[in-house]
């Protein structure tokens, strides 16, 4: 774990809390040759205990709220949360639906908000790069060293 921290490459966990899948498929598009976020040093992993950055999509449904909290608590510190898309950021357009609690920040603290319905991969890259910079700031890693 320490070796990876020194390598300044945050790992990513993705969780869908009730999204329409639009932002999820754009996150998948990020991993593929056209956009390829691995060049920024981040990798998508399925294990919360290895993850540094949590990407959340969708308004938080009542059944998912406790699961989201559980996942967040399982992640080691320091950790960052990126709310991907309009509904993860604010709960819109599902505001007023009887089974949603609103945006992700109504359940766990959020560091970066990515707009768009569905958010475009270019904006998502901006969002995750912002999160990586923040994460490097917290861990004390210099971004120049990591990119060289």
């Amino acid at each position: 774990m320490n070796g990876r921290r020194e390598a300044r490459s945050p790992w990513i966990l993705h969780f869908d809390t009730g999204s329409c899948n639009g932002c999820d498929i754009e996150i998948w598009a990020l991993l593929t040759p056209k956009y390829d976020v691995e060049r920024f040093g981040m990798m998508n992993k399925g294990n919360p205990k290895h993850a540094d950055i949590l990407l959340v999509t969708g308004p938080v449904t009542k059944k998912c709220a406790s699961r989201l909290k559980n996942l967040y608590e399982q992640m080691p510190d320091p950790k960052l949360v990126v709310a991907c898309g309009d509904c993860a950021s604010t709960g819109a357009p599902f505001v007023g639906c009887y089974n949603t609690c609103g945006g992700v920040d109504s359940v766990i603290p959020v560091d970066v908000y990515v707009p768009g319905c569905a958010c475009r991969p270019e904006v998502l890259i901006d969002g995750v790069v912002m999160a990586v910079d923040k994460w490097r700031e917290i861990t004390g890693a210099s971004s120049e060293g990591a990119r060289s």
């Binding site: 308004p59 059944k63 949603t100």
Partner: peptide, 30 residues
């Protein structure tokens, strides 16, 4: 039930706005 938002109820609000909302039922087959 993890993804249930209650869209069938939300879609009944205004028949013109529901064109926008019913695309949000699913992003893969919107």
């Amino acid at each position: 039930g993890y993804n249930h938002r209650g869209l069938e109820k939300a879609l009944t609000s205004d028949f013109r706005r529901s064109i926008y909302m019913c695309e949000r039922v699913c992003g893969i087959c919107s």
